[in-house]
């Protein structure tokens, strides 16, 4: 079962409380780095990075129904673009992020063109192949002078600008948070309107969508490009945060991690990207203490389990639970939904 479309425009009475809630949440998120250690700040930065990547994959797979098992490849391209620009060309770190986005937008759009002709399973196959072969491509000896081959590239952690009284880890957190807010705002704007409706229509009723005048080819390749751009931006931010890129960190299991993230967070849901990111960042850390293989076993069990009992993911479950709570609390005065 596909999850329902995102919540439609909320009534004005609750939109005020929603804005207050969001502001409080933002404040709390901003305060976090001062309450935890540097290492935990770094982990939270990675959560933000993954959330951007997951939103990207969700635009393609959740909203548009095109299955990608190779988004780790776009993450890798973004990471390498950032690392090469910083290491070989001395480009400032903040400039590498938009460049990585543009490069991935173009790559994604180009990969999306042949992918247009592939449906469902076949697209999954093609992207799976992309995900599996990416580390080998990065190790290629013709590219070695830029990519550093198997060794990868080490980059230097940027210092906070303008003499801000915070440490580099905290600065990176805020930098990533700012980009995340920008990307989520863009994504929300893109998905709530005409484009979002077209993407969902193509996913659910491709023939009817075309008959209604939705340019399916354009929207599908657009979705691929935009999705890759998000993931590429995340890749660049991830590379800056980790300060290191190497081919073997971008294998097929990274792509699968992203898939786990959107399935658990919630397909076709914007907040779902954040829940998914929290899951893929922290659950492996906890499970690692049992065994090196345990995180993956848990991933697998969660993937299958969610598909059986909660195909709408955490975001969908929260939405349903919240609606139920409001109906009970609100009594007869409110009309549901």
């Amino acid at each position: 079962m596909m999850p329902a479309s995102p919540a439609t425009a909320a009534p004005t009475a609750s939109s005020k409380s929603r804005i207050i809630g969001l502001a409080a949440l933002l404040l709390a998120v901003c305060a976090l780095p001062f309450m935890v250690s540097n290492y935990h700040t770094f982990q939270l930065t990675l959560v933000l990075v993954y959330a951007i990547a997951l939103l990207g994959l969700n635009i393609l797979t959740g909203y548009n129904g095109q299955i990608s098992l190779g988004h780790g490849a776009f993450y890798a391209i973004g990471a390498y673009v950032a690392a090469i620009l910083m290491d070989k060309f001395g480009v400032p770190y903040w400039l590498t992020v938009p460049v990585a986005g543009v490069v991935c937008l173009a790559t994604g759009f180009l990969f999306g063109l042949p992918a247009l002709r592939l449906e469902g399973l076949y697209l999954a196959l093609a992207t799976f192949a992309l995900g599996v072969s990416m580390p080998q491509l990065l190790k290629d000896k013709h590219l070695e002078q830029w990519t550093g081959g198997v060794q990868g590239i080490v980059i230097i952690k940027p210092d906070p600008p303008f003499g801000l009284p915070i440490n580099p880890d905290q600065w990176l957190y805020y930098f990533t948070l700012a980009i995340l807010l920008l990307m989520f705002l863009l994504g929300w704007n893109l998905l709530r309107g005409r484009v979002g409706r077209s993407l969902i229509a193509i996913r659910d009723q491709p023939v009817a969508a075309e008959a209604m005048g939705v340019n399916s080819a354009l929207y599908k390749s657009l979705a691929f490009g935009v999705s890759a751009m998000y993931t590429g931006v995340a890749g660049a931010l991830g590379a800056i945060a980790v300060q290191f890129v190497a081919p073997d960190s971008f294998g097929i299991f990274l792509s699968i991690t992203f898939l786990v993230g959107i399935v658990i967070g919630g397909l076709a849901s914007i907040p779902g990207a954040i829940y998914g990111a929290i899951f893929i960042q922290f659950v492996p850390n906890i499970a690692d203490e049992i065994s090196k293989a345990a995180p993956w076993a848990i991933y697998g069990v969660f993937m299958i389990g969610f598909m059986y009992v909660m195909p709408v993911g955490v975001a969908g479950a929260i939405r349903i639970g919240w609606a139920r709570f409001r109906r009970k609390a609100g009594g007869s005065g409110h009309h549901p939904g």
């Binding site: 079962m1 596909m2 797979t61 129904g65 299955i67 098992l69 469902g120 399973l121 999954a124 898939l259 399935v263 397909l267 993937m303 299958i304 598909m307 195909p311």
Partner: peptide, 8 residues
């Protein structure tokens, strides 16, 4: 749907 099957 195909997506669920692929995920499984």
């Amino acid at each position: 749907p195909v997506l669920s099957v692929v995920v499984v």
